[in-house]
Structure formats: structure tokens, C-alpha cells
Design a protein around this nucleic acid. Structure first.
Length: 883
RNA sequence: GGGGGAUUAGCUCAGUUGGCUAGAGCGUUUGACUGGCAGUCAAAAGGUCACCGGUUCGAUUCCGGUAUUCUCCA
């Protein structure tokens, strides 16, 4: 069975069981500080389990792209070395959400187990004697008895010898420290040959990390909530949450021994092998490298498709690290010294583009980004190798490389430590790995300490009035001030400052989201006024950051948004939408938003586009936007409409929304700009006033950035420009062609500068000549002394000139600028050699005459002081010294 | 968010106890050789040593700040 059919029949099977098939959520997580990437199928349904979002469909199934590279599940360094670890994988899952309020009723253990068995044995035709299941054995500490209910259900399907009891570690699933949890039942499969199976029975190898006796499907029965005190509380509604690794399933169904041998990976591996000119399955190291590259290119491509570009911090840094790991393996074991990963992309798109259209639609962009990253990292590697070679050259006797140096290479120049080890080994040297680890640990502690934020416990002032309220506490679309009260607050201490976070009952404050910055303002009761310096969103709550601790948290208070800031920001946000639409019109439909920042001062907008915008393109965008502003189009905002309706309206879909999200659609002229957006917007476009682009620049491969301003700011900018131009015209006596006039002046200046330089050179030569001619002769040495009115540097080069004139000559010059006196002594090279004269020594002897000090080299030395009356005496002293 | 680097000719980079008048390769221009091109040889042009301040007789070099950028950690 082909992988594409495996996926299809999974979804079709559950559709036939009245499940709603939903698309995969984006792999990149937004607005959840605890999670960077989707790492399990249930992530997008977290709010349903927690009861924060109402259930629409009780039965849901999907395939979810997951990435496991950070936090609790970090498989990155394992990938490639075995045949089953992955960074990115697909998780097939079916769900039942307790409240049977939707189109079909929910279910629990009986159906979940029945469906699983039916799918495996009837649809996929897996041999029953290969299957084992595990059931939760109970736990004394939690006061839980064994899951006999599941056990009894399984008994209907398979003999008890293949039903095993498992401990809390394997068979009790928890989302985190706290939250929904429950017992789970896993299905394992034994795909060993029959001889091997006779030697050791399969049930002895369950959960023993055997590569061919593996867990394939986990059925979780969520029925408890783990409280902060560690106690379990039964949930009112029970849920089913299942997850099955797609790649593993494909391996089983295709009868191969490795995930990488399935048709999901084989075409990619083949392509890599072709490019490397080495076939897969020949050499252990190159096989590992091919698996690494095949896995990582998938992960990176999907991440970029979901809007996460490689960068140097946060989630972007994780993506960069994955990509670099792939480059490193290719570089070391497959001799790829030129970018190559981007060449694999077409194969990937061919294989997966139909199931994940986001991959196909952006394939050009993705491959550009990957290529650029590859080039950059290969350059880093090259630099590192040079540094390393130089170190070896300057430390030829070292048998062990300092840990400090290895760490510097890694930390500052990004050169991977395992490569350093490899190169060192080739040269028969070792590395002080302890020293390296010490440096790394020091760096980690430093970072942790700096990043430490000490958040105090929430102080609850009043219980939430309505626990079922979702986003209803935000009233800021209509109101800029309202009477409200504090629900809870806490103190937050970071390395630099202390602040307080306040959650209100209802609030007019807009929390930072979708690029629009959070509101500022005040919370005032009769007794005190708290300054709100920022507003953020955390776990669906609106957090007001205030500078001082509420002294009267019980009081009713007036929450008031800084109106000026909000208005300016709002105008900028609406202008961003108009600009986005205009960019698509002018440049084409490939323009997609890659990030934005909207505050009261300006708009910063990043978008995908491949080349620098021309002047006329920028002008055209400005023209279109300003046209739309003058049309004074009313904004049309539709709250809480289903995603499908929004798409119907032609809304520009961003990186995908989570399942079940009702979206908000903002449009200015349905034929021009329709976007999904949660931000604030002007009533009609005329309020924006005026729009002006300040700059357009590139920030990454295929990503451009525009900075623009609106209203008064834009006006001010134009006035400034015009004023500057007018002043320039004035200076040029209003010549008809100002540009030409300026150009002429620049040209002229250039010519004159050259001429002056020439004249100065000539003059200096003449001065040098006349000084040489007027030199005193002291035995076989010529001696020149002269007070000059030159600049210090000019005098210095004059002294140099005389020195290199070929004569045996000692020169001493003085300069005087303001209060400052300088002496310069030069001695021709021959004299330095034959007479042992040293200008540095002389200058030290005589500098006290001008109340100063000095120094230099044997052939040229300088001194500085303040006493002009001593110059003659200094000259005399120098004269005596050379005799 | 924290740490460490980097910024020198159009490009890639050298430049240590602060001090020769700041260099190389490639590229550019010119000339010579050649019927022409490629090529070889010769020469020239091209630098506010990122910016601002400080220390010093003297700063590309040392110190502080700013900008840009790379990199590691979180």
C-alpha cells in the first residue's frame, strides 16, 4: 500500500465513522510561550480539553505535522543514526470530545478500541498474531486501579496472552505538570521474521526499544485533571485522544525494516544518493548522512512553509540548527561542498505537495531560503577551517587543542565541535573536551541567569464571573475606556526591573497580536492610578503590565487607553492592509506577509518577493494606497465567522488557523483588501490621511521589508524632504536643473581635491629641497632644523620626505597649533645604521624643553608639549646630541 | 533576552608588545605582444581603516558609546 493511500484510507475510515476531517494545524506555534512547535497531534485541541473553547464537532480526525526538536521531546541528535527517529513526522489521530453537542455524539473506550482494531485488521489487513496491546495497571500513589474496562474490551479481540499490563510511566498519559490526563492503551506490533519470533516471544520485547517490536498507536482516555497539588480530579467530560506515527505505520504496511525505506523517504534518499554519487546502503557513515539530510530537509521545508524562517533566535534558531546539521553531515560524509539541499526540494514537493498545498504554493520561496542558508553556513565552515589551520600553524607542538580555542571556534564562529574533533583526529591531535564543556556550561548558566524571570503567584482578587467566557472580556473595539475591576495580579521580577501583571474583568486594552503593539494607558480608582506600559496576550488572557503594585485591588476602577497612541496605531494598521493588497496588485500574488510591526510611529512590513522593488513600483504602491484613502472606503468587519466563509470572501489566508477558530475578517472594499485580522481598524480609510513609504530593503533570501508612515508623520516626512530640497535650490541660486548643479559641484570638488593634493606634494618637495639645501653640516651629517606652521601630519610627512631623499640627514621640525607644540625628528636609514643614531632616544632627551614628552622609532619620532619658548633650546640640544 | 566576534580598495581578505608614507589576490582602466579574440607582461586608478567620543607625543591598532552584521546560549 502506498503511503498516500495509507493516509487517505485512515481519514476515509474515520469519516465513515462520522468524524469530521480537519486540516493539519501549522507546525509553528504562535501565541503559546510554552511551546515553539506542534509536537503532538493533540496540540491544536488543547483548548477543547481545557474547556476554554466550545466543542463544535465531537468527532474529529486528521493528520498532523509535528516537530520534535526542543524541550521535553528532543530527538535531534538521534536522527539518522537509527532508522526510526525523526525531527518532523506526521501523527494520524482520531478524537472524541466529551460534550456530545455537535453533529454526532462522542465516544469513549469501547468505540475507540473497536475502531482501532477494525482499521488495523479489516482495512490495513495486519495479521492479528503480530499485534500486542498494553493496558494501565493502576497506581497506588494516585489511588488508581487497573484499567479493567479497556482490558475487558480488548479480550473480545485478542487472547489475553497478548494483553500486557503497563506502569504509570508507559500507560498513563499527562499533558504536562498539570492539566488533562488519563490512562492509555497502546498497540504494539512485532514485525520480526518468524524464526526470530520463535526464539524470543514478542511479549518479552514490548517497550524494550527493539527496532522491530514497536509501539504503533496510542489510545489515550482522558478522564482526569491533574491539579497543582498533585491530586487528580475526575473530569465532567471524558475525551479520547489517539496518535499513530504515520511513517512507522507505512513501514509496517510496506513490509520494510526502516522508516527510511518507505516510499515517503526513498525518493528523497535516492535523489541525495544521485547527487552524491554514492549509493544508499553501501557505507554506514554515508547512509547516516543521507538519512539526516532526508529527514531535515523535510522539517525545514515545512517550517518555512508555515512561516518560520531560519534566524538567530527562538524558533527560527531551531530551524537554522536543523538545517545546519544536515549541511554538516552532507559536507563531512558525502563531500557536498556546494549548496545541495535546495535541489532535493522538488522531489519533496512532488511527493507531498498534494496533501500539504502550502508546500507546493511556496516551493520557489522555500528553495531560495534554504539555498541562502546553505551558502551562509558553508562560508562559516570555511572560515572555521581557516581559523583552525592557523591555530595549528601557530601552535605546531600542541598535541592537544585548548578547550578554550575549541569553544571560541564554536561559540564565536559557529564551527561545530564534532567537525573540530574530526579534523583534529585526521591530524593526530586531540581536543580538551573538558575545557570545551566548561566554556559551554559557563555560557549556559550565564544565559539562564539573564533570562530568569521570577513570576510570583497569582493573587486572586475575585473568581471569574463566567468561566465559559472566551474572548468576551475584550471591549476595546468599541470602547477606549470602561469601568471594570481586577480579577487577579502578580509580581514579575526580571534581571532589570520589577513590574506587575494585572488581569481585568473586562478591558478596552488591545493586547499585542498580529503585529499590532499592545495598548498603553491608565487604570485608576479613586485612590490610585496605575500606569499600563504594555498589554500582552498569554493563554487567551489579556495581561496588563503596570509599573507599580495595586494598593487597592478590590476597588472598582476606570481602565483608560491612551487614545492618541491607539488612534495612530490603528491608522497604521489599516494602512498596512491597503499596502498588502497594493503590493499583491503591483508585484503579483506571490507576495505573502512574513511578519509585521505596527505601532504609533510607523509600519514595518516583511513580505516574500524576489527582487528589489524599483522606484516606480514603490511609487505605484503608494499611489494605489493613497487612492484608496481618498476613496474613503468604510471598513467592513465581520466578527466570529467560520473559516470557510472567510475563504469564500477571498480573505488572504495566512499561515493557517487552528481548527475550530472562528475568524475575524477585515475588509476595505471587498474587491480590494480582505484579510483575516484581530487588530483594530479605522472606520473608513480617509482617517489614514496620507501614506508614504520610507524605505524598502532586503532582510533575508526572498524577503523584503518596507517601512512606511501615515497621517501627520507622513506629512512631516514630505515637508522635511521638500524643505531640504528648497534649501539646496536656494544655495544653488535656483538653477533650473538642481541635480545637474549638485553633480557639477561634486565633480569639481573631486578635481580640486586632486589638484590640491598635487600642489601640496610639489610644495612639500620644494620645501624639502630648500630645507636640505640650507642644512647645516656637522662633520659628515647634514642637520635641518625648522619651525613650521604646518599641520602635525603634514610636518610628519615632510620629515619623512627629507629622510628618504637619499642624503645622510637628520631633520627636526616643530609645529604649533593653538597651544600645542609638536616636535618631529627623522633620521635617514643609513645614519641609523652607521652612526647608531636613534630619533626615539633624542626626542626623549629634548622633549622636556617644551614641557612635554615623546617617543617613536629610531628613524622617526615625535614629541608634544606646551612651551613654545623652548623650541630653540630643543633644536640646540638635538644638534649637540648628534655630534 | 544574555555572551563573544566582525566592520580596512568594487569583491575576498592580510595587517601584535600603538609608530616605516596601510597591503595582497581577484576585478577595473591603460599600454605592449597578437591579424582579431583568448592569453601573457607592464603600469595606473581606487581607502574619512563603519560612525561618534576618550586615552596618548602619536590610534586602523587601546578604552567607552552607536549602527550594521555574524555566532553561541536561553
Amino acid at each position: 500500500m502506498k503511503s498516500i493511500d495509507i493516509r487517505k484510507s485512515f481519514l476515509a475510515f474515520f469519516e465513515s465513522k462520522q468524524h469530521k476531517i480537519v486540516p493539519s494545524a501549522p507546525m509553528v506555534v504562535k501565541n503559546d510561550p510554552t511551546l515553539m512547535f506542534t509536537n503532538a497531534g493533540m496540540n491544536q485541541f488543547k483548548d477543547l480539553f481545557l474547556g476554554n473553547t466550545p466543542v463544535v464537532n465531537s468527532r474529529v480526525a486528521d493528520t498532523q505535522k509535528c516537530l520534535r526538536v526542543s524541550g521535553k521531546h528532543n530527538d535531534l541528535e538521534e536522527v539518522g543514526h537509527d532508522t526510526y527517529h525523526h525531527t518532523m513526522f506526521e501523527m494520524l489521530g482520531n478524537w472524541s470530545f466529551g460534550n456530545p453537542s455537535g453533529i454526532s455524539k462522542g465516544y469513549f473506550k469501547k468505540e475507540a478500541i473497536g475502531y482501532a482494531w477494525e482499521l488495523f485488521t479489516k482495512v490495513y489487513g495486519i495479521r492479528q498474531d503480530q499485534l500486542y496491546v498494553t493496558v494501565f495497571e493502576g497506581d497506588k500513589q494516585d489511588g488508581l486501579s487497573a484499567d479493567t474496562e479497556s482490558y475487558n474490551i480488548w479480550k473480545q479481540y485478542l487472547p489475553e496472552s497478548r494483553i500486557l499490563l503497563g506502569s504509570k510511566k508507559d500507560n498513563f498519559w499527562e499533558m504536562g505538570e498539570t492539566g488533562p490526563c488519563g490512562p492509555c492503551s497502546e498497540i504494539h506490533i512485532d514485525i520480526r521474521t518468524s524464526e526470530e519470533r520463535e526464539k524470543i516471544p514478542g511479549n518479552e520485547l514490548i517497550n524494550k526499544d527493539h527496532p522491530e517490536v514497536i509501539e504503533i498507536w496510542n489510545l489515550v482516555f482522558i478522564e482526569f485533571n491533574r491539579l497543582a497539588n498533585g491530586k487528580l480530579m475526575p473530569l465532567a467530560a471524558k475525551h479520547v485522544d489517539t496518535g499513530m506515527g504515520f511513517e512507522r505505520l507505512a513501514m509496517v504496511l510496506q513490509g520494510v525494516r526502516s522508516n527510511y525505506d518507505t516510499d515517503i523517504f526513498a525518493p528523497i534518499i535516492n535523489e541525495i544518493a544521485k547527487l552524491a554519487g554514492i549509493s544508499y546502503g553501501q557505507i554506514k557513515e554515508s547512509d547516516i548522512a543521507m538519512r539526516v539530510m532526508a529527514d531535515h530537509v523535510r522539517a525545514v521545508a515545512f517550517a518555512i512553509a508555515d512561516g518560520q524562517l531560519p534566524s538567530n533566535n527562538g524558533a527560527g534558531y531551531v530551524i537554522r540548527r536543523i538545517l545546519r546539521r544536515a549541511v554538516r553531515y552532507g559536507f563531512t560524509f558525502l563531500n557536498f561542498e556546494e549548496p545541495v539541499l535546495y535541489k532535493i526540494l522538488p522531489v519533496l514537493v512532488e511527493e507531498m505537495g498534494d496533501v500539504f498545498p502550502e508546500l507546493k504554493s511556496q516551493s520557489n520561496f522555500i528553495s531560495q531560503v534554504i539555498r541562502e542558508e546553505e551558502v551562509a553556513f558553508l562560508r562559516t565552515l570555511d572560515h572555521g577551517i581557516k581559523k583552525f589551520d592557523k591555530y595549528i600553524e601557530t601552535h605546531p607542538d600542541k598535541k592537544q587543542i585548548d578547550g578554550d580555542f575549541a569553544f571560541e571556534l564554536f561559540d564565536t564562529f559557529g564551527f561545530p565541535i564534532d567537525l573540530t574533533q574530526l579534523i583534529a583526529r585526521e591530524k593526530g591531535i586531540t581536543i580538551d573536551m573538558e575545557g570545551f564543556a566548561k566554556g559551554l556550561n559557563a555560557q549556559k548558566t550565564r544565559s539562564r541567569n539573564a533570562a530568569e524571570i521570577d513570576a510570583g503567584d497569582w493573587i486572586t482578587v475575585r473568581e471569574q464571573d463566567n468561566p465559559d467566557s472566551y474572548h468576551e472580556d475584550f471591549v476595546g473595539f468599541q470602547l477606549l475606556e470602561t469601568i471594570t475591576n481586577i480579577k487577579k495580579y502578580r509580581k514579575v521580577v526580571s534581571s532589570k526591573k520589577t513590574s506587575y501583571e494585572v488581569i481585568l474583568g473586562t478591558t478596552p486594552f488591545y493586547a499585542e497580536s498580529g503585529g499590532q503593539v499592545g495598548d498603553r494607558g491608565t487604570l485608576s480608582s479613586g485612590n490610585e492610578t496605575l500606569q499600563v506600559i504594555d498589554t500582552k496576550k498569554e493563554n487567551n488572557q489579556i495581561v496588563h503590565i503596570v509599573t507599580s503594585e495595586p494598593q487597592f485591588p478590590e476597588s472598582e476602577l476606570l481602565a483608560k487607553v491612551d487614545e492618541k497612541k491607539r488612534k495612530l496605531t490603528t491608522a497604521n494598521h489599516s494602512a498596512t492592509h491597503l499596502m498588502h493588497a497594493a503590493l499583491r496588485k503591483v508585484l503579483g500574488g506571490h507576495v505573502e506577509q512574513k511578519g509585521s510591526l505596527v505601532n504609533e510611529d510607523k509600519v514595518r512590513f516583511d513580505f516574500s518577493h524576489f527582487s528589489k522593488m524599483t522606484g516606480s513600483e514603490i511609487k505605484e504602491v503608494e499611489r494605489i494606497v493613497n487612492n484608496q484613502i481618498r476613496e474613503n472606503i468604510s471598513g467592513d468587519i465581520k466578527q466570529d465567522i467560520p473559516m470557510a466563509d472567510a475563504q469564500e470572501m477571498g480573505a488572504i489566508a495566512l499561515f493557517g488557523e487552528k481548527y475550530g477558530d472562528k475568524v475575524r475578517v477585515v475588509s476595505f472594499n471587498p474587491d480590494f483588501s480582505v484579510e483575516l485580522c484581530g487588530g483594530t481598524h479605522v472606520v473608513s480609510t480617509g482617517n489614514i490621511g496620507f501614506f508614504k513609504i520610507l524605505s524598502e530593503s532586503g532582510i533575508a533570501a526572498g524577503v523584503r521589508r518596507i517601512e512606511a508612515v501615515t497621517g501627520e508623520k507622513a506629512e512631516g516626512h514630505v515637508y522635511n524632504q521638500v524643505e531640504t530640497l528648497n534649501s539646496i535650490k536656494d544655495l544653488f541660486k535656483n538653477q533650473p536643473d538642481t541635480l545637474l548643479a549638485v553633480n557639477n559641484v561634486i565633480d569639481q570638488r573631486h578635481r580640486l581635491e586632486k589638484e590640491i593634493k598635487n600642489i601640496q606634494k610639489k610644495q612639500a618637495l620644494q620645501t624639502a629641497d630648500s630645507l636640505i639645501n640650507s642644512a647645516e653640516v656637522i662633520s659628515d651629517i647634514k642637520f635641518v632644523s625648522s619651525k613650521t606652521n604646518l599641520e602635525f601630519n603634514q610636518a610628519k610627512s615632510l620629515a619623512q620626505k627629507i629622510r628618504s631623499s637619499g642624503e645622510n640627514i637628520v631633520t627636526i621640525l616643530s609645529t604649533q597649533n593653538n597651544e600645542k607644540i609638536n616636535l618631529i625628528i627623522s633620521i635617514s636609514d643609513k645614519l641609523v645604521a652607521s652612526h647608531g643614531l636613534n630619533a626615539g632616544d633624542i626626542v626623549k632627551e629634548i622633549s622636556h624643553y617644551i614641557s612635554g614628552s615623546g617617543g617613536g622609532q629610531p628613524f622617526l619620532a615625535t614629541a608634544g608639549g606646551k612651551d613654545a619658548s623652548g623650541i630653540e633650546a630643543a633644536f640646540d640640544a638635538a644638534r649637540t646630541l648628534i655630534k
